Simulated assay, not measured.
Amino acid sequence: MEKFEKLTAVAAPMPASNIDTDIIMPKAFLKRIDKEGVLEGLFHDVRLYEDGREREGFVLNQPEYRSAKILVTGSNFGCGSSREHAVWGLEKRGIKCLIGSSFAGIFFDNCANNGVLAIVLPKETVSALIQEVQNSESKNVTVDLEAQTVTTPSGAILHFEIEPSRKEKLLQGLDPVALTLKSEEKIKNFEEDYFKKFPWLA
């Protein structure tokens, strides 16, 4: 997975609360266990009419937000089922960062495991950021993971907290497999010792 260090990009406001994983990635697009087709499925039912035309009111269809790599979300974003496809779709769409007041727990972990930074800020701070992104001429927000700051379009600097191990995984671009492989030598040594003690299990 790609490292996340610093990102300056268009931020799109998605202020509704309780946007669940069935909205982010409808169940019709869960038939595969790989990432093929997830881009088509992302926000499918709210992004498109039944005949395939784009819904003009959906934020990511609007010209000023089409290139967005950051979403500023309402509370409890990613609730519902634990489907990882929801995060796969966001990542495939180029969404690298989510900023909200709260996220569903499993969804929050799925983000970190797929290189998407989910930032938690106070509800009133998120509401103010949504208003700023909606009303300012510039839609660009800068996220600096090392410094743990978000710079708004007006230049205001917001500080956020993040668990050190989560921060390090994102900075280094380590998914769970890559993180495990950092201990490959220790794992091999354990296996060798274990099978010496219990050779009938080899």
Rank of each mutant, 00 (worst) to 15 (best):
M1P: 13
K3V: 07
E5Q: 15
L7V: 14
L7R: 11
A9L: 04
A9D: 02
V10Y: 00
M14Q: 05
A16W: 06
A16K: 15
N18V: 11
N18D: 15
I19F: 10
D22I: 14
P26A: 12
A28T: 12
D34L: 10
K35N: 11
G37R: 06
L39P: 07
G41L: 12
F43I: 09
V46W: 10
R47V: 09
R47K: 15
R47D: 08
G52N: 04
G52Y: 06
E54T: 14
R55A: 13
G57H: 09
E64Q: 14
S67E: 15
K69C: 03
K69L: 02
L71I: 12
V72N: 04
T73K: 07
S75T: 13
F77R: 01
G78N: 09
G78D: 10
G80L: 03
G80M: 06
E84H: 11
A86L: 11
G89Y: 10
L90P: 06
E91C: 13
G94P: 11
I95F: 00
K96W: 06
L98A: 09
L98N: 12
L98E: 09
S102Y: 06
S102W: 08
F103G: 03
F103D: 04
G105A: 14
I106P: 07
F107M: 05
N110Q: 06
N110Y: 08
N113D: 13
N114L: 15
N114D: 04
L117H: 05
I119L: 02
I119H: 03
L121Y: 07
E124L: 09
E124G: 02
T125G: 00
S127W: 00
V133Y: 01
N135Q: 15
E137A: 14
S138V: 05
T142H: 01
V143W: 01
E146A: 14
A147T: 13
Q148K: 12
Q148L: 06
V150Q: 04
V150H: 05
T151Y: 00
S154Y: 00
L158V: 12
L158C: 13
E161F: 08
E168L: 15
K169F: 06
K169N: 08
K169T: 03
L170M: 03
L171T: 01
G173W: 04
G173C: 06
L174S: 01
L174V: 04
D175Y: 05
L179M: 02
K182N: 11
S183Q: 09
S183W: 00
E185S: 15
E185A: 06
I187C: 01
E192Y: 05
E192P: 01
D193L: 08
F195C: 09
K197V: 14
F198C: 00
P199M: 04
